[in-house]
């Protein structure tokens, strides 16, 4: 679905990303983890086409990003960013409708409003539909933005789709952290989605990601299944924390961390 090869970005003489390669295919959730300043958001921006790396290429479905027509790309790839503020008092429903832009640049149809309402329900934000977006709490805004991203790439055909989530759970309560990531994972299982999410919580990543990419100071420190990446040695090397990792009898991985001695 997406393939990023040998991405390097430097700003002001400092390397933000150094020779990072990764790929994600439809049907999987890929989590990007790493300490602050490791280059997670930069990597996401490069893959989303928001800025062009100093070297390296990104291709979606085998086509380099530069060869996509923006509208065409927007129909298969959506990006949910950390926080999106609005000065104007659009209702939450109207904000979600903005996600339909690549499908209807001039006039919205009843079909688009249907999708908007379903996306709001899927993001557990249907009750916010008529509220003015600028008055919502941070967590409510995040759910509306998730709904907007869903509406943009709403499954309707057999085309593969790509969803980027940049710290989607940062403003959410525990309940909604789980429901958002579960929804994202369900999309990969049922609808040929690839989800790439920048996360901070190791246990959320362990629970919902199929693969984890661990970044450290702009380099790829590890890549693999949660059990392969989230090991005490790796976490000590990358985060400098002491960690214990257990697998429960039903196969769930739990990670406990504390400050290194």
């Amino acid at each position: 679905m997406i393939y990023a090869s040998k991405i390097s970005v430097s700003r002001g003489g400092r390397a933000l990303l150094d020779d990072v390669s990764l790929s994600a295919r439809a049907g999987e959730v890929l989590a990007i983890l790493g300490p602050n300043g490791a280059g997670k958001s930069t990597l996401l921006k490069v893959m989303a086409g928001e800025f062009i790396p100093d070297s390296g290429d990104v291709a979606i479905e085998g086509r380099p990003l530069g060869n996509w027509i923006p509208l065409e790309l927007a129909r298969v790839r959506a990006v949910m960013r950390q926080d999106t503020h609005l000065e104007f008092a659009f209702s939450a429903r109207e904000v979600v409708m903005m996600g339909r832009y690549p499908h209807c640049q001039r006039h919205t149809t009843a079909h688009d409003w249907d999708i908007v309402d379903q996306a709001l329900q899927a993001a557990d934000a249907a009750h916010l539909a008529k509220r003015p977006y600028p008055r919502l709490s941070g967590g409510e805004m995040a759910r509306v933005q998730f709904a907007r991203a869903l509406a943009q790439v709403w499954p309707g055909d057999t085309q593969q789709r790509l969803l980027f989530l940049d710290e989607p759970t940062a403003a959410l309560d525990i309940t909604h952290q789980h429901s958002l990531l579960k929804m994202a994972r369900d999309l990969t299982r049922a609808h040929r989605f690839a989800v790439i999410a920048v996360l901070h919580d190791l246990n959320l990543a362990a629970r919902y990601a199929d693969r984890i990419v661990l970044l450290d100071q702009g380099r790829l420190a590890a890549c693999g299944t949660p059990a392969e990446v989230l090991t005490p040695d790796q976490l000590m090397a990358t985060y400098h924390v002491a960690a214990e990792c257990h697998t429960t009898p039903n196969g769930e991985l739990w990670v406990h961390t504390r400050a290194a001695a």
């Binding site: 989303a48 086409g49 928001e50 923006p70 509208l71 065409e72 790309l73 927007a74 129909r75 790839r77 959506a78 990006v79 960013r81 999106t84 609005l86 000065e87 104007f88 659009f90 109207e94 904000v95 903005m98 996600g99 832009y101 690549p102 209807c104 640049q105 001039r106 943009q152």
Partner: peptide, 18 residues
């Protein structure tokens, strides 16, 4: 419609294909 999308921010609008 493009102006509506632009209100989300330029990067967001660009992601929407504007």
């Amino acid at each position: 419609q493009a102006l509506n999308a632009l209100l989300l921010g330029e990067a967001e609008a660009a992601h929407l294909g504007v």
